[in-house]
Design a binder for these strands. Sequence first.
DNA 1: GGCAAAATGTACCCGCAAGTACAATCCTGG
DNA 2: CCAGGATTGTACTTGCGGGTACATTTTGCC
Lengths: 211, 211
Amino acid sequence: MTTAKGAATRQRIVEAAAAEIRERGTLATTLDDVCRRSGTGKSQLFHYFPEGREQLLLAVTELEARHVFDDQQPYLGQLASRAAWERWRDAVVATCRRQGPHCPLGVLIADVGRYSPAARAVTTQLVRRWQDAVRLGIEATQAAGEANPALDADRTAAAVVTAVQGGVSVLLSTGSADHLEAALDLCLDHLLVPVQSGARPVVPHRSVRNE
Amino acid sequence: MTTAKGAATRQRIVEAAAAEIRERGTLATTLDDVCRRSGTGKSQLFHYFPEGREQLLLAVTELEARHVFDDQQPYLGQLASRAAWERWRDAVVATCRRQGPHCPLGVLIADVGRYSPAARAVTTQLVRRWQDAVRLGIEATQAAGEANPALDADRTAAAVVTAVQGGVSVLLSTGSADHLEAALDLCLDHLLVPVQSGARPVVPHRSVRNE
DNA sequence: GGCAAAATGTACCCGCAAGTACAATCCTGG
DNA sequence: CCAGGATTGTACTTGCGGGTACATTTTGCC
């Protein structure tokens, strides 16, 4: 019913929409913009998304959610030591800092995914899967003796995910990823046992002030 | 140049707009909605906001920012003991839980305040003032010997503010304030010294799973 | 009271972007 | 090859919402 060429076109449309939304926001993105960018016409767009804009936005939401999760996956699967946690933190911060306000994660949370219940469901599911992955990491790290064993893994995972979301929110408002970094650092400091046994869990390496 | 009656009308308009936006979002709120709700006409609206929608949105942003900050102020000024921190945390969580997705803070961060640089500046300033207040609380608590004195107060304040923002973000997506609570608890556990001196800083009081 | 300025009511305009109609082409299986 | 569905191009309709024009009333002030 749908040929390979058609599928390719459909994908071009979704990707063009995603790019446009990353750059200018859902609000400001029009179907004509998407058509222009994808080199197609409205007829194709409505051919592949009969329900129109809503349906396209949902597809974009799903694409971005998959995108975000796949980006994290290689790190999330490895979380079992202090070094791994720090690598993950650095990766998250670096990605967000580099992409700034066009970070797919941020766009997903704060922009797309707020315009329909279906899209919200997608982001909710992303949060849940993400939290599950973090929880597994925490449990593995506890098993390895590098994390405070008394912490509730799932609740702590919830806090970590929340920290990332908050950092991204601030990033979108202020353009600075410093808050993201501070929040993640606090979580890690709390989660991981001190490097030198016997020492207090205290690691203030950087200082942050918002401008 | 503007009489008392006029000022009252202007205020009615802003408040109607704020209410409408809380209930249905910035995107879905039209000027006609605002007029209907405030019992005015477009002529008044453009009389008091000559630059139109943008200007009205900015006024709403400022109103909500003031609203949020004033709500916190009584608690923020008192932060110097574990009990005070817990009161504040409970207040924040309870407010957000009660108001759900219509929480002014959430609307402010994730919805309004994203549609113009001016509005973003307002939210940025709110974040900064808020963080400053939290920082003062941390310093006071450290001075009182109830907070870990080795923590960088400003950086920790940044993390706390970020946690709230993240919690609100999740609230808006999932409708649950559990993440907010988990994130704040983690911050407090990390910040405050253990109740019994000598014990490890470990306090998993509740458990959270997202549905 | 009366007059200017402020406040308000009514009716309109206009552009934009979503969505539609339909014709033209391409591609694939038989 | 060729029929018929998949794909695409072009031109249109339409509704909505921001914004404007202008008439009318109300208010503050001398």
